[in-house]
Write a protein that binds this DNA or RNA. Structure first.
Lengths: 226, 226
DNA sequence: TAGATTGTTAATCGATTAACAATC
DNA sequence: TAGATTGTTAATCGATTAACAATC
């Protein structure tokens, strides 16, 4: 892998490519071109090729990309060929939805432990044997399950505190659903899945909507205005 | 407003500024500088000023931004001074979490009607008087509630079909949670809140994590992905 | 006046896109 | 060979950042 300095936006697009080739083989095409792939995920062909080229040469000139091979490589690049056990802090509505979401996501959301500081929630079964545990169990479970990824779905006021604790206990990546800025050491990977930003920008566009005017505004979370 | 060509990334940052000033007045500061504001939301001061300047001159040189005034302007720019009734299609786990999420979001997620094509779900109470309705009611409810924003939280296989129907019935903005590319006319605003992209990019970074190496990777979906 | 901070211009940086030689 | 398509370079585009005159 020669991913010297892969742009973050490229990393955001790899999942789209992966998802497409993953679904593709059910239908039957041995080979897919960058233009076909691009059309299906809404990205120009040149960009598809550029993105893939950061990681290697997966295609054949004059032919295209062999589907199985591309899927294999994307899986490996993204790390989806392995299992990444995760923990979730916050067993509220969103947290429970995420746990249940596991089944819907093709590549699997491996939530192995759920925590909440509300004694009223502790001990209750969330789904197939996954029980809500008190935060005191964090250290023990992180160690015994070798967890490196934490999901934060607690209210804003306790999010920072939870983040600090997770970092102390050796987590390296945090998926934060609390709509607030978390301060974590720079070596920790933090991804904010901030629905309130989504909601407000959605309202902005709807409020400024003028029928027929303007061109397409298809936004993929980060940016990618068009 | 002189928003001739406001970058999409700027729109994604306005909610962060808004959230900060919204929470700020509880504490007590009459004035906030771009550097203070920037520090609190993780964005350089120059960028804060540039972003705001797309919409007007809200600060005073040598002084800073008056908090109440800034909040007022951001509220107006984002359209949060009005109510934007929305509908939700898909009463699964994620859909129900969104309905319940309403209370947690300061600015309010105005879901006024919920639809599902599963007769087993129809009629059941989701929360305080909001009942799941069959899709046949879409047209009637969109008209009587003047709804312009639709939220799609159905499985991948039916998402496109739902999108087409919403567009036909006059929706202008779609918040799509189904992990798939929707084809909609270019005048429709489409925002993909794709958790599977989030999950996969999270795994990428965690899989490629090397302790201590590299610098900060704080991504706002959108980059954020960003 | 001296210090602070905005709004804006210009320079920098980085990502997207066009173009094309290499290859099947 | 003729047509297709990659991988990559170079040109373009657009966003970020530094710098500073204007202003309090």
């Amino acid at each position: 892998m020669r991913n010297s300095k892969v742009p973050g936006v490229t990393i955001e697009r790899l999942p789209l490519y992966y998802r497409y080739v993953q679904r593709l083989d059910r239908y039957e095409t041995n080979v897919v071109s960058s233009s076909e792939l691009g059309k299906r995920v809404g990205i120009p062909a040149a960009q598809v090729r550029k993105d893939l080229s950061y990681f290697g040469e997966f295609g054949r000139r004059g032919v295209g990309y062999e589907v199985d091979s591309l899927r294999y490589h994307l899986e490996k690049i993204l790390g989806l060929n392995k299992t990444w056990p995760m923990l979730l802090v916050g067993a509220g509505n969103l947290g429970r939805a995420l746990v249940n979401y596991r089944g819907f996501l093709e590549q699997g959301l491996e939530i192995r432990a759920v925590f909440d500081n509300d004694p009223g929630k502790t001990g209750s079964n969330i789904v197939d044997g996954l029980k809500v545990e008190p935060l005191e169990n964090l250290e023990k479970r992180i160690t015994e399950l070798s967890i490196k990824i934490g999901i934060i779905a607690v209210p804003v006021d306790s999010a920072q505190e939870v983040a600090v604790k997770l970092v102390e206990l050796g987590i390296n990546s945090i998926w934060n659903f609390a709509p607030t800025l978390l301060e974590v050491p720079s070596h920790i990977f933090l991804r904010n899945e901030d629905l309130s930003v989504g909601l407000m920008s959605l309202i902005y566009y709807s409020a400024n909507y003028e029928s027929g005017k303007e061109c397409s505004h298809h936004i993929e979370k980060n940016s990618e205005d068009k």
